[in-house]
Design a protein around this nucleic acid. Sequence first.
RNA 1: GCCCCAGUAGCUCAGUUGGACAGAGCAUCGGACUUCUAAUCCGAGGGUCGCAGGUUCGAAUCCUGCCUGGGGUACCA
Length: 589
Amino acid sequence: MGTLADKLTIVFAGAFDSAGYDRSYGEVRVSDRPDLCQFQCNGALAAAKQYRTNPRQIAQNVVESVSAPEVFDGLSLAGPGFINIQLKDEFIAAHVQEVHGDERLGCETVGTPGRIIVDYGGPNVAKPLHVGHLRAAIIGESIVRICRFVGHEVIGDVHLGDWGLQMGLIIEGLRGRQPDLPYFDAGESGPYPEEPPVDIADLEELYPQASEREKNDPDFAEAARQATVELQAGRPGYRALWKHFRDVSVDDLRQSYEQLNIRFDLWLGESDTQDRVRGLIAQLKEEGYARESRGALVVEVEEPGDRESIPPLMLEKTDGAVLYGTTDLATIDQRVEDYRPDYMLYVVDNRQQQHFRQVFKAAWKTGVAPESTRLEHNGFGTMNGKDGKPFKTREGGIMKLKDLIELVTGHARTRIETIESIREYDDDEKETISRIVGVAALKYADLMNHRTKDYVFDLERFSSFEGRTGPYILYAAVRIKSVLRRAGDRGLQAGRVMAPKSESERDLDLKLSELPAVIGLAFETRAPNHLCEYAFQLATAYNRFYHTHHILSEEDGDRRASWLAVSGVTLRALERVLDLLGIEVPRRM
RNA sequence: GCCCCAGUAGCUCAGUUGGACAGAGCAUCGGACUUCUAAUCCGAGGGUCGCAGGUUCGAAUCCUGCCUGGGGUACCA
């Protein structure tokens, strides 16, 4: 079905065609001058270039060729050749009626579904999630949901950092504390205790300590490097220990992500590619793609046509160790083999841009990924503090995600106590509402910023519940639920959508019709902020409508039933968009 | 040095890929609750779109140069 603008585009494409111009000029879109018209077609201006004619004349010809009197309330020319379009209220209502009857609210699915792997999250084993992980997780989750909704098969992979030096650091850190554990006995080969020697609190303490010590204690640093090498070589005690670390950490990560309503399909990590890294390197050498350079092994990715210079992708360091580029390449190799994906999307910090350019170019060049596989880095900006520098807590440390979630939940809890109608809810429901509202505030505040831009992490804004915020939108949705619930109690039902009676109602109808375009745009650009903007506009449109018309006390039964239908569509649209953003809606608040 | 990204209202940001007087939210000021949830709604003020050129009928948007900030620049991830 698409949007109203889509329907109008078909009409105008036909009109351009029958007036003797290319149909592609018939694109109609929502007007950016709502004071003048609802929709506009600017194709005549573009066409004037191609046909070397007066754009106003073209527009005139097109308008005369339009044949659909039941649709238009007004068609007029303006300025150099704009066509301004007003629709009949009946036509608008009929469209909303269609949306009402459609499971997908007018949103079509893609013609040729593909398989998409989304790589997001990227947490490290043993390191607690902090605000820096927030963006990857929530933007990635939203992109996953959007891709899935438009009809693709999507596989989300958390892609753990579980194989680097940090593992050696923790091993050595633990040895410092409990040197007698069987894992450290080189002569021992297992079996080892099933019970992990550490819990998550230990891990979160061990890593920063070890990391700090690495900087000041060369012997310790060397030991950690050695432990990393031995772990990677398969020393049984270290492997057993590593597995404990990983399990303990993953348990904790799952809980944190669950609180944010984020669920991964795959919990793979760097370690899962290790058994194929050597083979891949050997193969690339044999095929002549990998060559030695300054003592290291690299794949050249710069091509003759390239303007900018791009360093080669390094597979092996001088000392023979592999780097994360190697792992990333091996991961692509693995994914191609296991899943044959059409797309791989990497939701990772912008700063990795060059890295991914290298990896992708190398993957295509060497045939690790077919050229038809779309590899994309969907980068996002840095989260800065109010001083414009990367965000730190007041103490100068990094804020843990758990603390942040507790903070926003706490704000919501406090807020709830000030609202009379909620005071009587039982404690469980209050707590649920607090969590949903707090997390909605957090996620919305992040998602509303364009993905690629740096932005300022502002606690006040993150926990604000007024204006352009998650809770504002939840409130509108919950308000509709409440109306519908009461209507249900009185035995009132939704009916046929009638022509709008007021400006606020017409605006709501028109806004509802835009949903498919917004989701399409969010998908094409992998940018959830468009959904945030739309959710806000739709919520505002409904709030205005709500204030101008009292639904339940309306005496005209048909009118009331129509309003219930429109309210129902609005609720479904809001819930759909919020779901695509990964935001939950409470029953009431 | 070279490369990438950004600069829009006091603050935080949109701006549909070149279209009509540049839009929101916050903050400030003023209004609206005996009626479906006021976490709401209505109204007001607020701009040299970093600067200077250029392309175009038309530029916040494209090109060139400069200024400012951030990031990257083969053996960390």
